[in-house]
């Protein structure tokens, strides 16, 4: 075994750090929701500033990666390379998809985005079925009509 019994983790420190980061995320989100002090994209970035250390604490200390052989650490980290590729490529692709939706929407006079009161609800059929139902910002019940 790569780790022996003396490789103990300072549990209390890890626990407190995880709690503090989680609380910070929620407070940050709540303050943003009520004040909107930064754009959404900045909020996403700030939340990841807290989320990534949390994930790292779990992997390094709880999953004992700190005490493992280099080979196992490489094995554990390898998937994150593919994760990075997948997420980055997907983000690029999603921008293309968004562009396509809006371009085609402007071409079709029958397509209108539903607003809060659902008074404009005419849709084109076909390719926009997937978009149906996500336009209402606040009230999921309104989707049932």
């Amino acid at each position: 075994m790569a780790h022996k019994n003396n490789h103990s983790v300072n549990l209390l420190t890890c626990f407190l750090l995880l709690l503090v980061f989680t609380a910070a995320e929620i407070v940050l989100y709540e303050v943003w929701r009520q004040t909107g002090f930064v754009p959404k994209l900045v909020l996403v970035f700030l939340i990841f500033v807290f989320t990534i250390p949390k994930a790292a604490i779990v992997m390094i200390y709880f999953m004992h990666l700190k005490f493992e052989k280099p080979l196992l650490i490489m094995l554990a980290l390898a998937p994150f390379v593919t994760v990075a590729i997948l997420v980055l490529v997907t983000l690029t692709d999603s921008q293309t998809l968004a562009y396509r939706i809006y371009t085609s929407a402007s071409d079709l006079s029958t397509f209108k985005i539903i607003h809060h009161h659902g008074d404009e609800e005419e849709h084109s059929s076909g390719s926009h079925n997937n978009a149906h139902g996500v336009h209402d910002e606040s009230n999921v019940d309104a989707e049932k009509e």
């Binding site: 692709d93 999603s94 968004a98 939706i101 809006y102 985005i113 997937n130 336009h135 606040s138 999921v140």
Partner: peptide, 13 residues
């Protein structure tokens, strides 16, 4: 990510 960003800003609950 694809489905959410694909809806564009403001169109996601």
């Amino acid at each position: 990510i694809v489905l959410r960003f694909g809806q564009g800003p403001g169109n996601w609950p």
